[in-house]
C-alpha cells in the first residue's frame, strides 16, 4: 500500500501536466472540429442559398419575388405560392423538346468523348508512339486557347463540311453542318483535358498488367477494353461529368450554329424569358427544371468524381 502510495505520490506530479496537456489537446481538437464543421456548414449554406432562392422564387409571382428581396422571406416558400410559373414555362418555351435535345446531345457527347479520349490517352500512355511527349504537350497546350477565339473559325469550318440527308429522292449530299444535331456534338467529342485526365490515370495502372495480358495473347484493343478501362472507373466518371457539364451548359455555340427551334438545347431557352418585361418567376422555374438533371448526375457520381479529382490532382 505504502509502496503504491509512494509510487502514486512520485508519479502524480509528473503525470498531472500530461493529463492537463491531453485535456487541452482534446479540447483544441474538439474546438477545431467544431470550427471545421461550422466552416463547412457556412460554405454549404453559401453555395446552397442561391439554389434555394431559385427554387423558392419559382413558386412566387414576380411582384412578390421583388417584394421579398429585402428579407429572409426571399428564401422561404411563404405568401402566394403556386406552380403557375412552371405551367407558364411550357407555354413560353418548348421546354420538353429542349430538355430532350440537351439530354441527347450531352449523352452522345459524353459516351463518344469517353471512347475517343480514352483511346487517345491509351495510345499515348501505353503504345510506342514516337514523340508522344511532344504530342501530349501539344494537346495540353490547346487548353490555353479559349473557345470564344475558335468559335467563328469553327463556324466557317463546319459550314464547309459535307452533310448527308435522306430525302424523298434518296440520299443527298449538301454542304454545311449548320442547323444540325451533329454540329452540336462532334466538335466537342475530342477534349484535351479529358485526354490528359485519362492519360494520368492510365499511368497509375501498372504496366505489368498489360504484359500479363499480352502473354495471354491479348492485342492492344483487348488490353484497352478488358484491362485498362475496367480499372479506370473514377477517371471515366470524372470525364463523364466534366464533358457533360459544358455540353449541358452550351450556349454560345448553339446560338451560332442552330437556327431551327426544334434543334435548340436548354440553355438557349433561358433567353426566351428576357423580353422587355422579364418574367422572373418563370426564369426561376425554368432554371430549376434545367438544374435538376445536373444535380442528379452529380449526386450519382459524387464519390467517383471526388476520388478521381483528388487522385489526378495529387499526380498532376
Amino acid at each position: 500500500m505504502a509502496i503504491t502510495e509512494v509510487a502514486s505520490a512520485k508519479t502524480a506530479p509528473t503525470s498531472a501536466p500530461h493529463v492537463v496537456l491531453g485535456q487541452k489537446t482534446a479540447k483544441k481538437k474538439r474546438a477545431l472540429g467544431i470550427g471545421g464543421y461550422l466552416l463547412r456548414i457556412g460554405l454549404a449554406v453559401l453555395f446552397l442559398f442561391p439554389i434555394l432562392f431559385m427554387f423558392v422564387s419559382s413558386l412566387k409571382p414576380d411582384q412578390q419575388i421583388f417584394g421579398d428581396l429585402s428579407s429572409i422571406a426571399a428564401f422561404l416558400p411563404i405568401g402566394n405560392i403556386s406552380m403557375d410559373n412552371y405551367s407558364a414555362v411550357f407555354d413560353r418555351v418548348p421546354a420538353a423538346r429542349f430538355l430532350v435535345n440537351s439530354i441527347g446531345i450531352s449523352t452522345i457527347t459524353v459516351v463518344a468523348g469517353i471512347l475517343v479520349n480514352s483511346l487517345a490517352a491509351f495510345a499515348l500512355s501505353r503504345m510506342r508512339v514516337r514523340g508522344k511527349t511532344v504530342i501530349l504537350t501539344l494537346i495540353i497546350a490547346t487548353l490555353i486557347v479559349p473557345f470564344e477565339t475558335l468559335a467563328l473559325p469553327l463556324v466557317w469550318w463546319v459550314n464547309q463540311l459535307p452533310s448527308f440527308e435522306l430525302t424523298e429522292l434518296g440520299f443527298m449530299f449538301s454542304k454545311g453542318w449548320i442547323d444540325t444535331y451533329q454540329v452540336q456534338i462532334i466538335p466537342f467529342v475530342a477534349n484535351a483535358f479529358s485526354i490528359y485526365l485519362f492519360h494520368q490515370y492510365f499511368e497509375s495502372i501498372p504496366k505489368e498488367l498489360d504484359e500479363a495480358a499480352r502473354m495471354d495473347g491479348a492485342g492492344w484493343f483487348r488490353i484497352y477494353r478488358q484491362v485498362v478501362m475496367p480499372l479506370s472507373g473514377p477517371a471515366i466518371a470524372t470525364v463523364a461529368i466534366l464533358t457533360f457539364l459544358p455540353a449541358w451548359n452550351s450556349y454560345l455555340w448553339p446560338l451560332m450554329v442552330v437556327q431551327t427551334e426544334e434543334l435548340r438545347p436548354v440553355m438557349v431557352g433561358v433567353q426566351y424569358f428576357f423580353q422587355l418585361n422579364v418574367s422572373w418567376g418563370e426564369v426561376m422555374a425554368y432554371s430549376t427544371l434545367i438544374t435538376l438533371p445536373v444535380v442528379a448526375l452529380f449526386i450519382a457520381f459524387q464519390r467517383s468524381f471526388v476520388n478521381s479529382i483528388a487522385s489526378s490532382g495529387v499526380k498532376g
Binding site: V155, N159, L255, V257
Partner: peptide, 10 residues
C-alpha cells in the same frame, strides 16, 4: 444568331 448566319451564308 443573325451575324453568325450571315458569316456562314445562311
Amino acid at each position: 444568331s443573325v451575324i453568325a448566319a450571315a458569316a456562314s451564308g445562311k
